[in-house]
């Protein structure tokens, strides 16, 4: 038994696993894009891709990727070349830096559970929030570098929006940290063993959900790439592969945001003991349980995208400061009160 644990903790093995994770994340982003197209088509009473790769258009995204990667790579003459080239990398990088701290389920052996995370450190939630906000920097680089007014407007909007949602997001996370008395995401996930935090802090969940939607830039908060106003937002000047990378980064961001939501509020990978007690199930069931929840959250986010119109940017900032911020404070008071009541 112990040998497996030692094997898993070997840094080389963990490094390899991490690389595999990046591949898996890319793959899941492809699946999400496909899901979005099929699911969106379904909602809009269309059929969606069905010619490439069988009835369900499974290979559609492969075709899109091949096309994007073999397209001509244009850099506008008046662009700032360094920023222009680096921007998609920064956007993608900020998404990948999130992977480091997120546990994707756990392997439960006996009473102990070993989370599948690249690293485990004490302030991982804080780290996640900070890193996730880095993508704004990338978007601003893209906009400034491409020397396009539409992109610039998009970047301004993005920053205005970030200031609006980042504060309530942080405070709602503090609400959880107060309750668990830790900023370690693994401990937060484990603390929800019988009772999910969505039931303990419903207001906090609502605030977090709306803020994380804004963080991902999904509709109704996709002001930064509102096609009807700003052409393609920050990506207006980007072609082929570079634009594709940015697109993938957004979908990866969306998946990781969903993971975060599951870990913080929806009970993580925790399963009752009589299931995890069985050896084989203990190794796989928590992971599947976790992934199933993530898929449900992703589907919900996709559905929201096709069901709502878009906010105007000043309305988003209004929402952030006038509604979400007081609500998150209220939630914090509630969390502290609960903590005092049960802790004392």
């Amino acid at each position: 038994m112990m040998s497996i644990v030692e094997f898993l903790f070997n840094p080389w093995v963990r490094g390899t696993l991490g690389l595999a994770l990046i591949g898996l994340i890319f793959f899941s982003a492809v699946i999400t894009v496909w899901l979005e197209r099929k699911f969106g088509a379904d909602i809009q009473s269309r059929i969606g891709p069905n010619r490439v790769g069988g009835r369900f258009g499974l290979l559609q995204l492969i075709a899109d990727a091949i096309k994007l990667f073999t397209k001509e790579d244009l850099i506008p003459a008046k662009a700032d070349k360094l920023l222009f080239v680096m921007a998609p990398i920064v956007i993608l990088g900020s998404a990948f830096m999130m992977i480091v701290a997120i546990p994707f389920g756990a392997i439960v052996i006996g009473d102990k559970s070993y989370p599948i995370a690249a690293t485990e450190f004490d302030i991982s939630v804080l780290y996640l929030e900070a890193v996730s906000a880095l993508s704004v920097l990338g978007i601003f680089m893209a906009a400034y570098g491409s020397n396009n007014k539409y992109s610039m407007l998009a970047a301004f909007r993005n920053i205005a929006r970030m200031i609006g949602y980042e504060v309530p997001l942080g405070i709602s996370i503090i609400g959880i940290a107060v309750m668990v008395q830790s900023l370690n995401i693994v401990e937060i996930a484990m603390a929800q063993s019988p009772l999910w935090f969505i039931f303990v802090q419903p207001i906090g969940f609502a605030v977090f959900f709306i803020s994380i939607l804004a963080d991902m830039g999904r509709l109704p908060f996709d002001q930064n790439e509102a096609e009807e106003e700003l052409v393609a937002g920050w990506g207006t000047e980007y072609t082929g592969m570079r634009w594709g990378l940015g697109l993938f980064a957004e979908y990866i961001h969306m998946i990781l945001g969903s993971c975060l939501m599951v870990l913080l509020y929806l009970g993580g990978w925790n399963l009752p003991k009589f299931i995890t007690g069985i050896f084989i199930l203990g190794a796989f069931a928590p992971i599947f349980w976790f992934i199933a929840k993530v898929v449900v959250v992703v589907m919900t986010i996709i559905m929201i995208r096709w069901a709502l119109p878009r906010f105007r940017i000043d309305q988003v900032v209004d929402l952030g400061w006038k509604v979400l911020f007081p609500l998150s404070i209220l939630n914090l008071i509630w969390a502290v009160a609960l903590g005092l009541f049960f802790g004392a």
Binding site: I43, Q44, S45, R46, L219, P220, D222, A226, E227, E228, E229, W306, A307, L308, P309, R310
Partner: peptide
């Protein structure tokens, strides 16, 4: 008009 508000689904319903 709906699609200019980002309400793409409504556009498709109307066209349908």
């Amino acid at each position: 008009f709906s699609t200019d508000l980002g309400f793409v689904t409504m556009f498709l319903y109307m066209i349908r």
